[in-house]
């Protein structure tokens, strides 16, 4: 039971979930420093309670603690997310400058629209798109049902689809 108290297991838990926990907090807050800070604090909490938490529960423990830390700390404000290295689609003709301009413009508007999504929808959407997580995994981490994840994802896509309407 007290396995997490072993430094090498604790470390492997960090290597397994640390990035995703940080990303999760970033999707929520749009503040990378805060995300890294709170992710560290969640791991410190895990260490302090290493005797009480089983390895199987470690992941959802981390996400729950991180979520609580976030709720305690943050007065909600508008988030501005920074995305990096968005790869070009491989199946498009990159030699057409008009197309590239359009695609870039679309991407910019899309990124802005993602930042403006309700927090719940944004987090689910980015956990799927960036961290490539399945709905089942997201549900487990957020302690909600798969149905609830689908609902948030659907909501996110429905809002983002409006981008096509007001070009």
């Amino acid at each position: 039971m007290a396995d997490i108290c072993k430094e090498e297991i604790y470390k492997s838990l960090y290597f397994e979930h640390g990035t995703y926990l940080r990303n999760f907090l970033y999707y929520k807050s749009g503040d990378m420093n805060l995300a890294e800070d709170l992710a560290q604090d969640a791991y410190i909490k895990l260490w302090e309670n290493c005797k009480k938490v089983s390895i199987e529960k470690a992941k959802s423990y981390l996400f729950t603690v991180a979520n609580n830390l976030f709720l305690n700390k943050v007065s909600r404000k508008k988030v501005a997310l920074q995305f990096a290295n968005t790869k070009p689609n491989s199946d498009v003709d990159v030699s057409d400058p008009h197309y590239i301009m359009q695609a870039n413009e679309f991407k910019q508007r899309l990124e802005k629209a993602i930042a403006e999504l309700p927090e719940n929808q944004r987090v689910v959407f980015l956990m799927n798109r960036i961290d490539k997580k399945k709905y089942r995994e997201i549900a487990e981490e957020l302690s909600i049902s798969v149905k609830a994840v689908e609902k948030r994802m659907h909501g996110a896509l429905a809002s983002l689809r409006q981008l096509h309407k007001n070009v």
């Binding site: 990303n23 970033y26 990378m32 997310l81 920074q82 995305f83 990096a84 290295n85 968005t86 790869k87 070009p88 689609n89 695609a103 679309f106 991407k107 899309l110 993602i114 798109r129 960036i130």
Partner: peptide, 9 residues
């Protein structure tokens, strides 16, 4: 498609 290769820092 537009979000397929999206990453953060």
């Amino acid at each position: 498609q537009a979000t397929e290769g999206m990453t953060i820092a």
